[in-house]
Design a protein around this nucleic acid. Structure first.
Lengths: 138, 138
DNA sequence: GAGCCTACTTTCCAAAGGAGAGCATGAGAC
DNA sequence: GTCTCATGCTCTCCTTTGGAAAGTAGGCTC
């Protein structure tokens, strides 16, 4: 309200407050990382590699079960670019490519561990909530 | 390999190994929950509510900054259905709706805390990896 | 020389998501 | 009385993302 004098009277959805105690750059950066890392496929690949150690391209796909090859390629590339997985190409025919977690990938896997445990602990409560919500909607 | 005799010789991308030590039902359920919960907007809303306590609809949108109203509505509804947030409608004009984390939402926020710390701790390393990856691509 | 094997790539199509307008409705301005 | 605004959505386009399936390279086997 303080700076509403010069701003148009219209409600601005995209407006952002200027005064923030934390560093906005760091905030945005962390938010970007979260946006990339908090991806369904990233988490699932992370878990598969954490559990099985080194996996080949097709094996990762099989562990996940229902990922398309396009998304598998894309997500693995992104994770490689972010330094989460190491990609080892054995120059043989037919091609042989191994993927494994880097140290950073392992640490992220450890950080996500709590979320997995949470999901395992609360899946019953979540399903109950969904049922109750559905009943409430009627 | 054991059941390859009756299966077609073609490589089946969508195939899945039958012998697994863990319960496949639980595995699938947890995977589904992770797929829902490991959503960019869910995590960001969770953090905003964790940090600010109770927020109104438009305030949540402002904290996130770049979410569309459609996704905000949809994600909040999903989180409400999953029992992560409580939605309180004050029947006044103009409408006033409050959102706050439930106990379960708070526990999920705590579980994600490790991921936030990881992101804050490793953002420099990630950027370095990205730069190196880009240079490697040339 | 036909086919296979593997890690992709490409193409086409469906689904998800963003931008912006519209809606209901009563309080306050004029 | 009439006009406008404020708020939490909802609806309608239109762009981007993601899935399914076919294609590719190239040495190797039959």
């Amino acid at each position: 309200m303080s700076d509403a004098s010069s701003a148009p009277a219209l409600y601005r959805w995209e407006g952002h407050q200027a005064a923030k105690p934390v560093d906005p750059k760091l905030e945005a950066l962390v938010r970007d990382i979260i946006g990339k890392v908090a991806d369904k496929w990233t988490m699932l690949i992370l878990e598969a590699l954490e559990e099985h150690g080194t996996l080949r391209f097709t094996d990762v796909g099989r562990k996940l079960g229902d990922i398309s090859q396009k998304m598998l390629t894309k997500t693995l590339r992104q994770m490689e670019a972010d330094g989460l997985v190491a990609r080892t190409v054995h120059p043989v025919i037919p091609p042989h490519v191994d993927y494994q977690l880097t140290e950073m990938g392992q640490s992220l896997g450890a950080a996500f561990c709590g979320v997995w445990l949470w999901a395992e602990a609360h899946h019953a409560a979540i399903e109950a909530s969904r049922a109750a919500f559905r009943a409430r909607q009627d």
